[in-house]
């Protein structure tokens, strides 16, 4: 059986908000290491990889591996009933038909109990090769969100150019063109506000802004975001949170 108690409902609520528009149904794979999810969008352009490590829960118990098939829209509806500060407990039997969710207020004067039907999802896991990326860019998550939103007003696509001079986000469309260049900064007092660029070679890749804007729904989960890129391979966008991560992979646009 699974029993996982999470101190802050907000973590799960924000996580669901960050993935539910990309993925409709997904298996939450529960093991003694924690709860993970890997799912692609319908067009196979983007992939979401979530890990909530066991040590992020207190307590966490999972006797044997379970795949909880969940409609993310349904889970999101149920989680709307949880306050951000509530303590959430997830429970499932071995071979479950239902997932039980309990929301307790901080001072335990209100306990809400929900049961959600599970579904059978036949999901293929893709093998994601270990990649030593040529460019690793860490920047404030809010900055990345703003850049994607602003450039999406100009074009459907953005070209990200990482070089020793900085990282340049550039878009060109019918109304004109625009770009934002970030230089490396150091803000030792607030590392989350710094931009760092580690580069082994220059990288230039073009991506759909529709997907990137979607990924930035994870902004409330983390102060910083890391973009990892190599020429001709998918982009990795990672939001690290306490007790886990939310990663997105995005296939590049290629020359016709």
């Amino acid at each position: 059986m699974l029993e996982a108690r999470l101190a802050q409902a907000a973590v799960l609520k924000k996580t669901l908000d960050a993935i539910k528009e990309l993925v409709t149904d997904a298996n939450f794979d529960c093991s003694d290491g924690g709860i993970s999810l890997q799912a692609m969008d319908n067009s196979h352009v983007a992939l979401v990889s979530l890990l909530l490590r066991a040590d992020g829960f207190e307590p966490y118990r999972c006797d044997r591996n379970l795949a909880l098939g969940i409609n993310l829209n349904s889970l999101s509806k149920v989680l709307r009933s949880a306050q951000n500060e509530d303590i959430i407990t997830l429970k499932a039997a071995d071979d479950p038909d239902n997932l039980s969710l309990t929301f307790e207020s901080q001072n335990q004067d209100r306990i809400s109990e929900y049961e959600m039907k599970l579904m059978d999802i036949d999901q293929e896991h893709l093998g994601i090769p270990e990649t030593a990326y040529a460019a690793v860019i860490t920047m404030p998550a809010a900055e990345f969100q703003r850049i994607c939103r602003d450039l999406s007003g100009i074009s459907e696509s953005v070209t990200i150019d990482a070089s020793k001079d900085g990282v340049k986000f550039a878009s060109a469309g019918d109304i004109g063109n625009g770009s934002v260049t970030l230089k490396q900064t150091h803000n030792p007092e607030e590392p989350a506000l710094s931009t760092s660029i580690e580069l082994s070679e220059s990288v230039t890749l073009t991506f759909s802004l529709k997907y990137l804007v979607n990924f930035t729904k994870a902004t409330p989960l983390a102060g910083a975001v890391t973009l990892q890129m190599s020429n001709d391979v998918p982009l990795l966008v990672e939001y690290k949170m306490e007790g886990g991560y939310l990663r997105y992979y995005l296939a590049p646009k290629i020359q016709d």
């Binding site: 093998g127 090769p129 016709d256």
Partner: peptide, 14 residues
């Protein structure tokens, strides 16, 4: 602005 590729060419099915 180029053709959208998919992840299937990059990531392997097990």
């Amino acid at each position: 602005t180029g053709k959208q590729s998919t992840l299937l060419g990059f990531f392997n099915k097990p």
